[in-house]
Design a protein around this nucleic acid. Structure first.
Lengths: 241, 241
DNA sequence: CAGTGGTCTAGACCACAGC
DNA sequence: CTGTGGTCTAGACCACTGA
């Protein structure tokens, strides 16, 4: 998947920052030096650095260079599109996933209709998974995978990683998502599953799209408010919409 | 502030999308056509389109073109760095700001120490503002502006827009921020100010930096959970950190 | 096949930082 | 002054789309 030279350079620099070869507060080699180091043109180097900028790994300062930023904040980057499985691995959490449901349905379940009222009905697969960390329920994930493009979802894949299945097994390209975060009143059933003291939970609702703009997944993630934490890195926009 | 040719092109295309000259589902002119339309090289056009991609205004499809995405989701883009004042204007909300505090202090207030424990003490300006929409309190913003680089903050500017003051009056370049969203128990005082039925509120805590990596502002925004909504557009990352 | 976006290159000129 | 990043250009080759 990672193929472009600029991506490889970005990947290499990112891992060198992660492993301390470039430390917080230090400057990366200049763009001209990186040009020689990687045997690439300056614009290619700049594309790589651009990616590190958007992650908040570096900040460029005109006339000086690219300084490595403090990345202790990246403890739990729910921002962006990543799966729980990817987070679990990259953070080495002791997490467990319990597959509660995985079934084909002929129409959009009422739960999704409530939070995505503009969605047309559709056949698809309903998946419900409870995520636990240290045996404490932290998230209840409800997914609806549209058919097409997703024909089926083997239980073993549902327990592992839906994204991995979509990307690696089906060969589809996951591209972007719109997300909203709100505080919602939940059902007794969900309260019980999450073992919450009251019916208030944080809901992250997202619509996930492929590179060809096909909607393929709706997700409702109900979080234990005590354990919910969303971390974001944002840059000031240069243009106003 | 907007100067680069690619920014101007991005700005122009964004406003044309906003005003319906390019509609959802339609394709923009091809990159080669835009090259002629704007008298720019293809790479410059591509930089402009890249910006529209990150906002979720368009999606590029290889071999086909750049399709305009549905932007009804952009109703309330708290994602990114924008001030309440900017949001208010761009969304034409009927909002009011009450300035509760605006004073110079010699050290970091305990409230900030609690949520930013790693911060060193510092002189600065403490500002507390209550935001109301239709006379209902929705957010209590607590800001701490570090001195240096911010020497003072006239009350009239605090009521208007801190960002505008920082950028236009002081000539500083606001560049990036790290944000966390959590659910927190608040004090009786804050509960009263926000007129909440209980002590639970959504906290958006952010550290805001200038382009030279100087920290200039800490913000704690306590939101009415019933009125809190965070909207985000995210793209799948090509590299793993 | 022609047209599209994806990528890379070499070179150029500018503004800024710091000596 | 030199070195840095910021920007733009013209041209090239590739892979994908769809007729």
């Amino acid at each position: 998947m990672v193929k472009a030279k600029s991506d490889l350079i970005a990947q290499d620099l990112a891992s060198k920052i992660k492993h301390g070869q470039f430390k917080c507060g230090e400057y990366l080699p200049s763009e001209n030096q990186l040009t020689d180091l990687y045997g690439a043109s300056r614009e290619t180097i700049r594309k790589a650095l651009q990616q590190l900028m958007t992650f908040g790994l570096i900040q460029k300062i005109k006339g000086k260079g690219s300084v490595v930023l403090d990345l202790q904040k990246f403890a739990f980057p729910i921002s962006g599109i990543s799966s729980f499985d990817e987070l679990n691995k990259s953070l080495k959490m002791h997490a467990e996933t319990r597959l509660l449901q995985d079934k084909m349905v002929n129409s959009l379940p009422p739960l999704f209709k409530k939070y995505f009222p503009e969605q047309l009905s559709n056949t698809g697969i309903y998946v419900e998974r409870l995520r636990l960390i240290n045996d404490e329920p932290v998230v209840l994930d409800c997914d609806f995978l549209l058919n097409p493009p997703v024909e089926q979802l083997p239980a073993v894949e549902a327990k592992h990683s839906i994204y991995s299945y979509i990307e690696n097994q089906l060969g589809l390209e996951v591209s972007y998502a719109t997300k909203t975060i709100t505080v919602e009143k939940i059902t007794d059933d969900f309260q019980k599953k999450l073992q919450l003291p009251n019916q208030q939970a944080v809901l992250v609702a997202s619509q996930n799209y492929l590179a060809d703009t096909t909607l393929f997944q709706l997700t409702l993630s109900f979080h234990n408010p005590r354990r919910f934490k969303f971390i974001d890195f944002a840059r000031r926009q240069k243009i106003k919409i």
